[in-house]
Design a protein around this nucleic acid. Sequence first.
DNA 1: TTTCTTGCAAAGAGTTTGCAGCTTC
DNA 2: GAAGCTGCAAACTCTTTGCAAGAAA
Lengths: 151, 151
Amino acid sequence: METRIDRIKKQLHAASFKLTPQREATVRVLLEHEEDHLSAEDVFLLVKDKAPEIGLATVYRTLELLTELKIVDKINFGDGVARYDLRQEGAAHFHHHLVCIECGAVDEIQEDLLEDVEQVVEKRWNFLVKDHRLTFHGICWRCNDRGSVEE
Amino acid sequence: METRIDRIKKQLHAASFKLTPQREATVRVLLEHEEDHLSAEDVFLLVKDKAPEIGLATVYRTLELLTELKIVDKINFGDGVARYDLRQEGAAHFHHHLVCIECGAVDEIQEDLLEDVEQVVEKRWNFLVKDHRLTFHGICWRCNDRGSVEE
DNA sequence: TTTCTTGCAAAGAGTTTGCAGCTTC
DNA sequence: GAAGCTGCAAACTCTTTGCAAGAAA
């Protein structure tokens, strides 16, 4: 059976790149942390466990490469650090994020909630939507449960 | 009649800050460029025309202050540079952006298109929405008009 | 005087790049 | 051996901070 790594390898080859051991280690870290939103530094530290000789620059170069090939998405929650998210296979659109302003947790919404909104944008603004970024800032269910919420 | 500057001055005073000449010059630049999405450097260069002795650090400090007071919004389109947008007076929510991947233009949508979506998020994810960031990436009406659009 | 604010220069964080050496075909 | 890839260190960009001097209350 074809694994996710195999498919990524094919994508790289199709674009004339190799899946080197360093690149594979990086991809594996991303696969093992699909739920998280790792920074380049985070990825670097995790990759080092598998491949201690790897350099930070290689991780950056790999993440950039994967971003170009649309295998990962580079996101920015405004804290000055780029984060990298493995794209859902076959996902045409970026998923959404819920950032908790209390505890800092970041949850994902895989469903596309914007279909109607995109229709409006395309019709009313004559803007051909190719992708979107949507992040909500607020209080997550964990913090909501934990106590009363007043403004 | 009370001007926008007057009101901003009051907001500063209410939080025990002064509207110094440097801060006023910075705010004026933002007012004169409401349509744009200026980086700190952009603001700095424009402020320098009015007040040549101003330092870049002061501009950064002023923009940070205005962001804290929710007079401006700090945005990030993923190019590693923070941009600053004067908030619409009385706007509870952040406006949306249309970023053209052809010409780089950034247009604004002041209308809140997300009311329905936020309801869903609050109900289904038990997430209390306080604010949102929504950016569409695609082809703007200018580039659309200019020629045929194929992928 | 005391407190806030500023300009400058230095420091800091995150990211990119030049280059020599190493792989891979 | 040509082409691609890597690790290291240096460079670079954007932003923040320390500090002495200046302005305001």
